[in-house]
Simulated assay, not measured.
Amino acid sequence: MRQTVSDVMTANPVTVTPRTPYKHIARLLAERRISAIPVVDGHGRPVGVVSEADLIARLRTGEDTRRPGPIAGGRARRDWDRAHALFARDLMTRPARTVTPGESVHATALRMARAGVRRLFVVDEGRLVGVVSRRDLLGTFCRPDREIHADIERDVLQRALWMAPGQATVTVEDGVVTLVGRLDSRGEAERAGLLCARVPGVLGVRNRLDFVWDDRGGTRLQSSTVDR
């Protein structure tokens, strides 16, 4: 049920080396319709990334023939150097932000949002094996409701919780899951909601499961509902 980066990433992305020329990089970005390309060393390890923004820097300051002096500041000189760079090693942004194939999609989305980046490069034992973008992550929320329903019935109710047929019912509408039924304990009801929330494509869970025994407080109840 837990969806990981390896499930959604683009495997074996196109790469360049530190010595790849500017024009070749620009051609690759245009032909492959991608916005950035990883730079790898001789061992396949990502050492940086060249994006459209790095290439377009030439349009901003490329007409200035003189490198800015010390009074202009370090950033102005770095921008000038990048605008006049001819190879990936001088164009690229360091370091390349990476993630491992086994990291969850949820954790990866949080990392991407906090870093303010559009993509992360996927590494396995240091070597580049893929790239995951914001679009890849958003794709997980486009799953049809019927697929989500089938996963919950099979993986949550039957395999994880061993529920008897008819003990609980599931409905899914626009990615929101509603659980209705009666379980033996409050812990089981809460666990059902948590497991459903982890199914790829689920946007929310309305847990309307009743329980007979409050195993968290030791009180036997006739009817109660745990909401999520």
Score class of each variant (00 low, 15 high):
M1N: 04
Q3N: 08
T4S: 10
V5L: 11
A11Q: 13
P13Q: 07
P13N: 06
V14N: 04
P18E: 00
R19I: 11
P21V: 08
L28N: 01
L28E: 01
L28S: 02
L29E: 06
I34E: 00
A36E: 06
P38S: 11
V39F: 13
V39P: 11
V39Y: 09
V39R: 09
D41N: 15
H43M: 11
G44Y: 14
R45F: 13
R45V: 09
V49E: 03
V49I: 07
V49M: 07
V50R: 00
D54A: 02
I56Y: 12
E63F: 15
E63Q: 11
P68D: 03
P68H: 05
A76L: 11
D81I: 08
A85S: 07
A85L: 05
A85H: 05
D90Q: 05
T93N: 00
A96S: 03
P101D: 00
P101L: 00
P101G: 01
P101Y: 00
V105R: 00
H106D: 05
A109H: 07
M112Y: 11
G116R: 12
G116P: 13
L120F: 08
V122K: 12
V123M: 11
G126A: 11
L128D: 05
V129G: 12
R134H: 10
L138I: 03
G139A: 09
P144G: 04
P144E: 03
R146T: 14
R146M: 15
E147N: 04
I148W: 07
H149D: 01
H149G: 00
I152P: 01
Q158A: 10
R159C: 00
L161H: 10
A164W: 12
P165F: 04
G166E: 01
Q167Y: 06
V170N: 02
T171Q: 09
V176S: 06
L179C: 06
G181K: 05
R182G: 09
R182M: 14
G187V: 00
G187A: 04
A192E: 03
L194M: 11
L194D: 08
L194G: 07
L195V: 03
P200D: 02
V202T: 10
L203V: 15
N207R: 09
R208Q: 15
L209H: 10
F211K: 04
T219C: 06
S223F: 15
S223D: 14
S224E: 14
V226P: 06
D227E: 13
